[in-house]
Amino acid sequence: MKELIIILEYIGTFAFAFTGASVAAKSEYDFFGMLFLAFLTAVGGGTIRDMLLDVPVFWTISSVSLYIILIATLLTLFARSIFNKMQSTILLFDTIGLGIFAILGAQKALALNTNIETAIIMGIITGVLGGILRSVFNNEIPIIFKKEVYATTAALCSVAFIGLSYLEIPYYLNISGTLIFCIIFRYSSIRFNIHLPKAK
């Protein structure tokens, strides 16, 4: 299971780093600006999660995540000419990163014997905070403050993962099912304009 968690962390890091670098590229940032935004997007949520859980911040223990962010940024830099054709790809990567980090946040909290409520919150923080930082530093309105159910998706993914864990569903099936649910739910919410009620 430990090996799978590490693989998921790397995939999620690449996915969020790619979306962060892509947003920066569309705003015509230089390479360092792209790298910085990719870094915030990829590790922002996990950093705050680890600080709240009072454990060593994950990317200070192993530098692999930092190299993944660098690689994702370099790939994005050399693909700048096709960004206008990559909106669906960016959305998919962002959704995958959201689901993976929600799972990892909830799993890490459970491994530390926190209560279920804390695990759900850690899943949400890990999943959405990087995207919030990306938007704030790019002078955009964070997506969770818009009508799309971004944070709700992270919350439901956390709940699904925790629920399946308590049902003792095999870990691989749990993760696969939760990620599939994440993709279907987010794409459906966008396609059918599903959103939570707003204050009038």
Score class of each variant (00 low, 15 high):
9 E>M: 08
78 F>S: 08
108 K>Y: 05
91 L>S: 08
191 R>T: 11
11 I>R: 01
26 K>F: 01
23 V>Y: 00
63 S>W: 04
31 F>S: 03
69 I>H: 00
88 S>A: 07
190 I>E: 12
9 E>F: 11
76 T>A: 11
189 S>D: 04
111 A>M: 06
133 L>D: 06
168 E>I: 05
150 Y>L: 10
30 D>G: 09
160 A>M: 14
183 I>Q: 05
145 F>L: 15
86 M>T: 09
11 I>A: 10
175 I>Y: 04
15 A>D: 07
126 T>E: 00
136 V>G: 05
118 T>I: 13
144 I>W: 12
51 M>G: 04
106 A>L: 10
196 L>M: 14
50 D>K: 06
184 I>W: 01
150 Y>H: 12
134 R>T: 11
89 T>F: 10
44 G>R: 13
87 Q>L: 02
119 A>F: 01
175 I>H: 06
138 N>E: 14
133 L>S: 00
77 L>F: 15
11 I>E: 04
85 K>F: 08
146 K>C: 04
199 A>S: 15
53 L>I: 02
64 V>F: 08
80 R>M: 05
90 I>Y: 05
25 A>V: 06
137 F>D: 13
187 Y>C: 05
83 F>L: 15
172 Y>C: 00
32 F>E: 05
108 K>E: 09
164 L>A: 12
11 I>H: 07
11 I>N: 09
39 F>M: 15
177 G>A: 04
17 A>Q: 11
117 E>C: 00
188 S>H: 03
153 T>C: 15
52 L>N: 05
93 F>T: 00
90 I>N: 05
84 N>Y: 06
64 V>H: 12
162 I>P: 07
56 P>Q: 07
190 I>K: 09
88 S>V: 04
79 A>K: 08
31 F>L: 15
81 S>R: 14
7 I>H: 10
197 P>C: 07
11 I>F: 06
151 A>E: 09
37 L>A: 14
108 K>F: 06
46 G>V: 12
50 D>A: 04
194 I>Q: 09
179 L>H: 07
73 T>I: 10
83 F>K: 03
114 T>Q: 01
4 L>N: 12
58 F>L: 09
17 A>M: 06
73 T>M: 13
38 A>D: 14
81 S>E: 13
130 G>N: 07
107 Q>V: 07
64 V>R: 05
39 F>T: 15
73 T>Q: 12
154 A>Q: 13
78 F>W: 12
167 L>V: 04
102 A>M: 10
19 T>Y: 13
156 L>C: 09
93 F>A: 13
69 I>D: 07
108 K>H: 06
149 V>N: 06
176 S>W: 05
12 G>S: 11
57 V>Q: 02
134 R>F: 11
96 I>S: 05
184 I>P: 02
121 I>R: 00
116 I>M: 05
173 L>T: 05
196 L>A: 15
86 M>Q: 03
67 Y>V: 12
84 N>R: 10
104 L>K: 03
145 F>Y: 15
194 I>V: 14
165 S>E: 12
61 I>F: 01
82 I>Q: 08
2 K>P: 01
121 I>P: 00
65 S>N: 07
23 V>Q: 03
68 I>D: 03
39 F>A: 15
41 T>V: 13
124 I>Q: 00
183 I>H: 03
143 I>N: 09
29 Y>N: 07
152 T>L: 14
43 V>P: 03
90 I>H: 14
133 L>H: 02
52 L>W: 02
105 G>R: 10
47 T>F: 12
124 I>G: 07
56 P>V: 06
39 F>C: 14
114 T>W: 03
